[in-house]
Design a protein around this nucleic acid. Structure first.
Lengths: 197, 197
DNA sequence: CAGGATGTCTAGCGTTGCTAGGATATTGTC
DNA sequence: GACAATATCCTAGCAACGCTAGACATCCTG
C-alpha cells in the first residue's frame, strides 16, 4: 500500500513536470498561441482530461511555466551579479543579464510578465523564486540604502518597459545598449541621493 | 449617384466609428475578454459579418480603439505639459499625466500597449497620434539635448513598466507617487550629463 | 418596370477551453 | 485465486470563439 502509492505519486509528479516542460517547449518553438490543450495533451501522449487532473486550467499551466522561469531568472541574475568584478559593476551586470534573459527566452518571459497569471506578487504568499529574482535587484544597492527596495522597483520597471516595448516593436530594437547605458548611469551614479529622508 | 453614394459613405463612416466606440465601451466596462464579435455585433445592432466589412478582423478593431487612445493620450500629455508653470516642471507633469491615463483607462491602455496590435511603431508609416504622444516626452527635454529621443525612450519605458507592473499587481499599487518622484529626479536632474558623446 | 449591383443576414465551419460519464485497469479483501 | 472497490484514463460532447459562404432583400440605374 505504501510503496505502491509512493510509486504512483512519483509517477504523477513526473508527469506533472512533463506537462510543464512540454508546454514550455511548445511555447518556445511556436509561441503561446500554439499551446492549446489538445496539442499539449497529444505532446505528452495523454488525453486532455489528464491535464485537468494536474492543473485547474490552462492558466495554471502557464503559471507553472512562469514559476520555473522565475527560478531560472533568479539564478541567471545571481550568476551575473556574482561574476561582476567589483560591486560597482554588479548593477550593470544584472541589468544586462535581465534584458538578455528577456530577449533570449521571449516565450518564457511572456508567461512570467504578460500573460494572465495566478501567481501572487509582492504579498505574503509570493513564491520564493519571485522574491529571489526581485532581491537580486535589491542587492545591487548598498544595504545602508534605506530606499533600495524602491530603487529596485523602479529599475525593474524600467527594464521591463524596455524589454517589452522593444520586443513588440514599439521602440526600435537597435540602440538597446545605449538605453541600458543611460538607465544605468542615471540610476546608479547617484544611488545615495535620497531627497533627505 | 453622387449625393446618394455620399450619404452612404457618410452612414458607413458613422457606423465605422460606432463599432469602435462600442468596442471601447464594452472593454472599459467588462474588460477585453468580454469583447467578442457576437456581443459587439449585438451592441451595434448589426450582424457579425458587417464587422468584417469594416475591419479585417477583431485585431483590427482593437487597433482602431488603440489609435483613438493614442490621440487622447497625446492630447492629455500636451495639456499637462502646457499647463506646467515652468518648463522644469513639464517633465513631472507629463509623467504624472501618463500614469494617470494608464490607471484611469486600463482597458484603453491595454489595447494600446499590451494586446496584439497592427499598428506600426517607430517607422515611416507610424500613425501621427503615436508620434505625437512620443513627441510629448521628447519635448520635455531641451532642444539642444542631442540625446533627447533616447531619454524619451527610456523615460517612456520606465513609465510603461511602472504602469503595467502595478496594474497587474506585480509591484504594490501603493508607493506609486514615490516611484514617480524617484524616476523624475534621476532622469531629470542630470539631463545634460551625456558620457561625452 | 426589369436587371444588376449593393448591402445585410442566416447558417455553419473549424477551433478553443473544459467536463460528464463510461470503459478499463489496478488494488485490497475474502 | 475470484470478486468488489478503487483509482485511472479516454471517448464524446458542450458552449463559445473568430470568421465566412451563400441566400435573401434592398436599392439605384437603364
Amino acid at each position: 500500500m505504501s510503496a505502491i502509492s509512493e510509486r504512483r505519486e512519483r509517477e504523477r509528479a513526473y508527469r506533472h513536470q512533463l506537462i510543464i516542460t512540454a508546454a514550455r517547449e511548445l511555447a518556445e518553438t511556436e509561441g503561446w498561441e500554439a499551446v492549446t490543450t489538445r496539442r499539449l495533451a497529444e505532446r505528452v501522449e495523454y488525453s486532455q482530461p489528464v491535464l485537468y487532473s494536474h492543473f485547474n486550467g490552462k492558466d495554471a499551466i502557464v503559471s507553472a511555466v512562469a514559476l520555473d522561469g522565475f527560478s531560472e531568472l533568479a539564478a541567471h541574475l545571481r550568476r551575473a551579479r556574482q561574476a561582476a568584478p567589483e560591486s560597482g559593476q554588479a548593477l550593470r551586470a544584472v541589468c544586462r543579464a535581465y534584458l538578455e534573459f528577456a530577449t533570449e527566452r521571449p516565450a518564457l518571459y511572456q508567461a512570467m510578465f504578460i500573460l494572465p497569471t495566478e501567481l501572487r506578487f509582492a504579498s505574503a504568499e509570493t513564491p520564493p523564486p519571485l522574491r529571489a529574482s526581485f532581491n537580486e535587484f535589491v542587492n545591487c544597492f548598498h544595504p545602508d540604502n534605506k530606499r533600495r527596495e524602491l530603487f529596485a522597483e523602479v529599475l525593474w520597471s524600467a527594464l521591463h518597459g524596455i524589454a517589452v516595448l522593444s520586443e513588440s516593436g514599439r521602440i526600435p530594437p537597435e540602440g538597446q545598449e545605449e538605453r541600458l547605458d543611460f538607465l544605468i548611469t542615471q540610476i546608479a551614479d547617484t544611488p545615495m541621493k535620497p531627497t533627505t529622508p
